[in-house]
Amino acid sequence: MTVEQVITALPSVELERSCIQFLYREAELLDNTDYSGWFETCLSEGLEYRIPIRTTRVRTSRDAEFSTTGFHMTDTYGTMRTRVNRLLTEHAWAEDPPSRTRRVVTNVRVRELGPDTAEVKSYLTLYRSQGDTTEYDLIVGERQDVLGMEDGAWRLRSRLVLLDHTILGTANLGVFL
C-alpha cells in the first residue's frame, strides 16, 4: 500500500471526530442515567441492537464463538423504548438505586459507508458498581455500530456487541452496552 492509498483509506478528520464525539456523548448520557436523553437523541427508529451469546470453542472449530441464533439481547427501537420506560418507573429494582457506571470507550475505528452512514467500531470497558459495597463488575467487549446521519446528527442504526465473556459476570443486563 502506498502512502497515498493509506491516506485515502483513512476517514476524514471531521467524520472521525464526529463519530467519536457521538460515542462519548452516548456514554455520558448513560453514565449520567439520562435514559430518555439517550433514547431520544442517540437512537434511530430503525435500530437493531444485538448481543450474541459466546461459547468457548477449540481454535480449529469451524463454528464461530459468537452465536448467530442466541442473544443476550436482541432489541429494536420499540423494545428499547419499553426498557427505557420501565427504568423511569419507581419499581425498576435492578437499577434503583442505580448502578455507578463508567463507560470507557476506546480504539475507535471509523469507516465511511456512504454519504450519511458510517461503520464505527469501538472497545467498551464498562465498570459497574451498585449498593453499599466496594465490589464491582466489569463488562468488556467490542461494539460494531452503524451510525446514520439524521437531521444533521448521528444516530445509532445498529449495534452488535461482541462480549469478552461466555458467562456474564454481572447479575443482570440492566445497563446498556
Partner: peptide
C-alpha cells in the same frame, strides 16, 4: 427472562 429480561433483572436483586 434471561440476563436482560425485564422481569428477571429484578428477581436477581431480590
Amino acid at each position: 427472562f434471561g440476563p436482560s429480561g425485564i422481569f428477571e433483572q429484578d428477581d436477581t436483586v431480590a
